Computed example of a mutant assay.
Amino acid sequence: MLTCSKYHFEEKVLEKLIRLEHKMEIFNEKMKIWKDSISTKLSQFEDKMDSYDETTKHFKIQINNKIDIFEEQMSNMSQSLTSYSQQLKEAEQTRDNLIVQQREDFSKMMAKNDVIAFSAYRSLSQSLSTGTVVNFDKVWTNIGNGYNPNIGIFIAPRSGLYHFTSVVMSESKALYLRLFHNGAKISSSYMDGGFKTGLFDVLLSLEKRDTVSIKSTGTYTVHSSGGNYISFSGYIIK
């Protein structure tokens, strides 16, 4: 009975050992599979890391190349802008020189031709008080720039004999004007109202910088409109 039990026990132990060995084999097989899987995944990961490193390296190379290209383009643009700026400065200098030359040529031509002449007018009425200059503020002709339309006064560019004429017009009330050479009264024109015209026509011997103007003797209104009814003209005779 004891012998049988011992045999049975050993058989059971052996059976368990066999089962354990089988489980160990299964475990080892699973471990091998797991190890292979881990190894494969590690290999794949390493491949991906290598690919990532390669991609990163390639990306860095592309970025650096683009930066180099951009810097080269910026350098070229800067050089082009510098060149254009220089060309613009040269063009402006050429233009300025041409303007100066044209002015000099014009001045020489005018001095050679010896022409001084102007003709100006007003397109609107002007209210006057004693001593107010009638300002013919619009210019048809101003050769020699002797007439100043901002103040209505002719300033002789040079000495000579000049001829001056002027047409003026009153409104409903009277108008009394005088033509002055410097501060001297030269000629007068009186209109007793009702849109009448008055005339000035004089020859004056002027020195350089002498002035000629038409002034009011009191509180009046000189008439004009879009018809340009009043004018002031003059020119050098010799």
Rank of each mutant, 00 (worst) to 15 (best):
I236A: 04
T40C: 09
L2A: 15
T130Y: 10
N97F: 04
F118L: 00
I69Q: 13
A156R: 04
K238W: 05
S80C: 04
L199R: 08
H22W: 09
E207W: 00
I236F: 05
I155P: 01
I18M: 09
N113I: 05
I237R: 05
S233H: 03
G234D: 04
T141K: 13
S216E: 07
F59T: 11
F118Q: 01
F164W: 00
E46K: 14
L2T: 05
L20T: 08
N135C: 12
I143K: 02
I116W: 02
K35C: 08
R158F: 06
K35S: 11
N182M: 02
K16L: 15
S231L: 01
K12P: 03
T132P: 05
T217L: 07
V100C: 04
K112L: 11
L88A: 08
F154Y: 06
N65L: 04
G144A: 05
R103Q: 13
N97I: 08
L128A: 05
M110W: 01
R178F: 00
P157L: 05
Q73Y: 06
G183N: 15
Q126W: 01
A111G: 04
E71W: 06
F70R: 08
R178D: 02
S83C: 09
L199N: 06
H8I: 11
I26P: 04
L203G: 01
S170P: 03
K60Y: 07
D105V: 07
K108Y: 06
T165S: 14
W140G: 12
N135Y: 06
I143H: 01
Y176F: 13
K238R: 07
T211S: 07
S159A: 15
M110L: 11
F45R: 06
Q44S: 12
T141Q: 12
T94K: 13
Y176E: 10
S188M: 10
Q62T: 08
L175E: 01
N28K: 15
L175A: 03
K215I: 06
H22K: 15
Y176I: 01
T211Y: 04
L42F: 10
E171C: 08
Q126E: 12
Y190E: 03
H22M: 11
S159L: 06
F45T: 02
S107F: 07
G194P: 06
P157D: 05
Y84M: 14
E207V: 05
K16H: 08
T211F: 03
M169F: 00
G131E: 06
D50I: 06
E207Q: 13
Q79K: 14
K89P: 02
D53I: 09
N182E: 03
V100N: 08
Y235E: 07
S125T: 10
H181V: 04
S39I: 01
